[in-house]
């Protein structure tokens, strides 16, 4: 018992101050929201398009756009661009409610999307949201960095968000993975088992677009092929801070910075 108490003292207090205080420091090599400088993109080389593993980049009339729902944040485009027209910033707030809001184009300054849930739903879930997690072909990276939110450093419980063991106990689903053919039915059944009203959150490039598995015959190219999605959180995998930021802004627990 004494050893347990001593260990407790040694480990100290670790829960982060965020969102009331500053967010935890991200690594300097962190690859967040991509920034485009369309003026620099001029010679039509399309090197970024060729380098992108998932077809996330489209260049039209020397105007590149990046679909963050497909982006693996590998930054190969940044490496090959001779004009430095694409750079990856340290902005971690990537969540969006609509698929088209994830497409970064032109020189528009990126700001956090307004992702707060509808008022009537918020009245129900704003202070207590129980989620069922379904991994449908996920590689266990999105799953792990969602799970980590339950640890004492992130302490998701402070926001009334909890992962529950049955769809019957849940207000919604948090889906990871490209939705394999072999998980299609299980995902559908889990969704059907959640009582109305319900919400769906898609976490990671796979769950949004299929990610690296996009257009494989074995996958459905993401969750919205099977169920309606209310919140998208891009990344491969998204940083826990990106996921937490998306969740609490969705609940209206934090403003748009």
């Amino acid at each position: 018992m004494l050893k347990i108490i001593l260990a407790r003292l040694q480990q100290g207090h670790q829960t982060m101050k965020y969102p009331d205080g500053p967010p935890p420091k991200l690594p300097d090599r962190f690859r967040g929201c991509p920034k485009l400088n369309a003026d620099k993109c001029s010679n039509g080389c399309n090197a970024c398009v060729g380098a992108c593993p998932t077809g996330a980049i489209v260049v039209k009339d020397n105007h590149p756009s990046i679909d963050m729902g497909k982006c693996l944040f590998c930054a190969e485009c940044e490496k090959v661009c001779p004009e430095k027209a694409i750079t990856f910033s340290d902005e971690y707030y990537l969540a969006a409610r609509k698929r088209q809001d994830m497409i970064a184009a032109g020189n528009q300054p990126t700001k956090p999307c307004d992702v707060v849930m509808e008022r009537d739903i918020r009245k129900l879930f704003g202070r207590s949201l129980k989620l069922r997690q379904v991994s449908a072909g996920g590689c266990n990276a999105c799953e792990a960095d969602t799970n980590v939110l339950g640890t004492l450093a992130w302490d998701l419980g402070r926001f009334g968000i909890q992962f529950v063991a049955s769809p019957r106990h849940a207000d919604g689903l948090l889906i990871t993975g490209p939705v394999t053919q072999n998980m299609h039915l299980a995902l559908k059944k889990t969704y059907d088992a959640v009582a109305e009203p319900k919400i769906v959150i898609a976490v990671g490039a796979c769950a949004i677009s299929g990610g690296p598995y996009i257009d494989h015959e074995q996958v459905k190219n993401g969750a919205d092929a099977v169920v309606p999605v209310d919140l998208y959180i891009p990344g491969c995998p998204p940083h826990p801070l990106t996921i937490l930021d998306g969740l609490i802004r969705f609940l209206g627990r934090k403003g748009c910075n």
């Binding site: 449908a136 072909g137 490209p178 598995y213 494989h216 074995q218």
Partner: peptide, 20 residues
């Protein structure tokens, strides 16, 4: 349940998706 056809997709590679 997690089968996403990786071995099959690697055939013909390497290409820019293989490392991913």
């Amino acid at each position: 349940f997690q089968h996403r056809g990786v071995e099959q997709a690697l055939i013909g590679g390497p290409n820019n998706r293989s490392i991913h």
